[in-house]
Amino acid sequence: MAAVVLPDGRSLAVTRSIEGSVRVWDLTTGQPVGEPMTDHTDRVRAVAAVVLPDGRALAVTGSIEGSVRVWDLTTGLPVGEPMTDHTDRVRAVAAVVLPDGRPLAVTGSIDGSVRVWDLATGLPVGDPLTGHTGPVEAVAAVVLPDGRPLAITASDDETVQFFVAAASA
């Protein structure tokens, strides 16, 4: 589950389900917003949400079929094509907006891989992040005070990895 506060003050929650759908909920009323989002072909295992500098809210979801999807929370429609560079189930997703306004997602898979995605283009950012020898079960992303993004990942291999981007010139 993920939650966001929109620029107009509304609070939304985004939930996943075993039948492959994603739902948006108004946290004030407790009521669903729109119809379920259903473009995944298998169970949705992970969800994150982020508000862009222009006020748009996105959800990022990862599924058993190994794909990552981006959704516009206002329209309920998918944004772009599925992102499919993982070779197995996606178990964890996090999203963050960089100081330059670029939205990124970090995803972890049962294949042990960690990917960073540019949500504006739907393309991977660089090579997969490496270090885990087992399934990645959790990811988090944050922007450090100096503006560099940090991804934190945890795996069944009983390790936690920290990936900090190099300072830009």
Rank of each mutant, 00 (worst) to 15 (best):
A3E: 15
A3Q: 07
V4T: 08
P7V: 10
D8V: 15
S11M: 15
V14S: 09
V14G: 08
V14I: 14
T15M: 11
T15H: 08
R16D: 08
I18D: 10
E19A: 11
E19I: 12
G20E: 15
S21D: 14
V22A: 04
V24F: 00
V24I: 10
V24W: 03
V24E: 03
W25A: 09
D26G: 09
D26R: 12
L27K: 08
L27N: 11
G30W: 04
G34M: 10
G34S: 11
E35M: 14
R43Y: 14
A46H: 07
V47W: 00
A48F: 01
A48L: 02
V51D: 06
L52K: 13
G55F: 00
G55Y: 00
A59D: 13
V60R: 00
T61W: 07
G62Y: 02
I64K: 13
I64D: 11
E65A: 05
G66Q: 05
S67T: 15
S67I: 04
S67Q: 14
V68M: 10
V68F: 11
R69G: 08
R69C: 13
D72C: 14
L73C: 11
T75N: 13
T75H: 10
P78K: 08
P78W: 03
V79E: 04
P82G: 08
T87L: 06
A92K: 02
A95Q: 13
V96S: 07
V97E: 04
V97I: 13
D100E: 15
D100Q: 10
G101N: 07
G101D: 09
R102M: 06
L104R: 02
L104T: 10
G108L: 06
I110T: 14
G112I: 00
S113L: 05
S113A: 06
V114C: 02
V114D: 00
V114I: 04
V114R: 00
V114W: 03
W117N: 07
D118R: 09
L119Y: 06
L119M: 14
T121Y: 01
L123F: 04
D127P: 03
D127V: 07
P128W: 13
P128M: 10
T130P: 04
T133G: 10
G134Q: 05
P135V: 02
A138I: 11
A140W: 02
A140H: 04
V142R: 00
V143C: 06
L144D: 11
L144K: 06
D146C: 01
R148N: 09
I152A: 09
I152W: 01
S155Y: 04
S155D: 05
T159F: 12
T159G: 13
V160A: 14
F162R: 13
S168A: 10
A169D: 15
A169C: 07
A169M: 02
